[in-house]
């Protein structure tokens, strides 16, 4: 009995060894291999996942996993060195870079695409155009009634993101210039903002343009995407025309970042090179974003030298 058992064990052991040898043999090519973990912006989750899928089709040896949670979540994870890449829809602040340095993490910045932020209102309001100043004043809580900007006499109901969102920070810093009003509802994601604005007939909200249109590029029912002018003397431009965002005529556009810990190498370098290649940029466009502008292309080239 004991003899039989040990024979079985020997056979099993041999099988195990063969399998492991085969497995090791498979890994030993010239291909780039590795795991890349990406975390951060909810705005960029779809973009990141599409990029990862397209990349993994070309490079079968690399596994890229992408999760959301908000830009702040990605930055916090990068600072604590828990991820390889942070997807961030705004630039890291100086204090964040300082915190990272204190943790022996050296944030390395690459721009992977551009995003236009849409401001949208409930369709029933009939509001179609606003200036940057008006949008800022509404979300700062200085304009509280729609009649002040040419709408019906009704209180403005505001929807926005939570403070861990890059969209929140970008909007605060570039459109408001000051803190959001305490009356802005902090929603969990842009999809929830869209949902809230659609069902609330006094509502205004903001978010990535991709969220305001359906798969046929038609604006969702019940929403009006507002045309924005930089100031009273400028033309109103709609973000629904891609050229307006690319030329900068639409004023609320922002770069989307990837942050690495130090200069990327190996699989990470291969991945970022793919993202910035023509194929990668096409993926960005197909998910509702815009290619890296020439200005940032130069920046990237300098960074990655």
């Amino acid at each position: 009995m004991i003899n039989l058992f040990s024979k079985k064990a020997v056979v099993l052991l041999v099988m195990l060894l063969t399998f492991s040898l085969i497995a090791v043999g498979c890994g030993g090519g010239d291909e780039v291999t590795g795991n890349i973990e990406v975390r951060g912006s909810d705005t960029m989750v779809n973009l990141g996942q599409s990029l990862a899928e397209a990349y993994m089709e070309e490079q079968t040896g690399v596994a890229v996993s992408v999760t959301g949670g908000g830009s702040g979540t990605g930055i916090a994870a990068l600072i604590d060195d828990r991820v390889d890449i942070a997807n961030v829809s705004r630039a890291m602040s100086e204090s964040e870079i300082e915190q990272a340095n204190n943790n022996n993490v050296d944030p390395f910045e690459v721009v992977i695409g551009m995003d236009g932020l849409a401001v949208f209102a409930n369709q029933d309001l009939g509001i179609e155009e606003l200036t940057m100043d008006e949008v800022g004043a509404i979300f700062r809580g200085e304009i509280t009634n729609w009649s002040e900007v040419g709408g019906p006499d009704a209180e403005i109901s505001m929807y926005g993101r939570q403070s861990n969102s890059g969209t929140y920070v970008f909007f605060r810093d570039n459109v408001l210039g000051d803190d959001f009003s305490d009356d802005v509802r902090r929603m969990n994601g842009t999809a929830q903002i869209v949902e809230g604005v659609r069902s609330d007939n006094r509502a205004i909200g903001y978010g990535g343009i991709g969220y305001t249109v359906d798969s046929n590029n038609e604006v969702e029912d019940g929403l009006t995407v507002i045309s924005i002018a930089l100031d009273e003397d400028s033309e109103y431009a709609t973000p629904l025309e891609p050229e307006n965002v690319e030329t900068g005529e639409y004023p609320i556009a922002r770069p989307l970042y990837n942050y690495f810990n130090g200069q990327p190498e190996g699989a990470q370098l291969d991945y970022i090179e793919f993202i910035l290649s023509e194929a990668g940029q096409e993926v960005a466009v197909s998910t509702g974003f815009y290619p890296v502008s020439p200005e940032y292309q130069e920046f990237n080239a300098e960074q990655l030298q």
Binding site: I79, Q99, N164, R185, M187
Partner: peptide, 30 residues
């Protein structure tokens, strides 16, 4: 609704202590 303003009436959006912790703990650096 998670608006961090002081509730003015029973129709105000509010944000409770638990919601604040749940929302913000994921983002803060250690």
């Amino acid at each position: 609704g998670n608006a961090p303003a002081v509730p003015r009436s029973i129709f105000s959006s509010i944000r409770t202590m638990t919601a604040t912790i749940a929302i913000e703990l994921g983002e803060v650096p250690f």
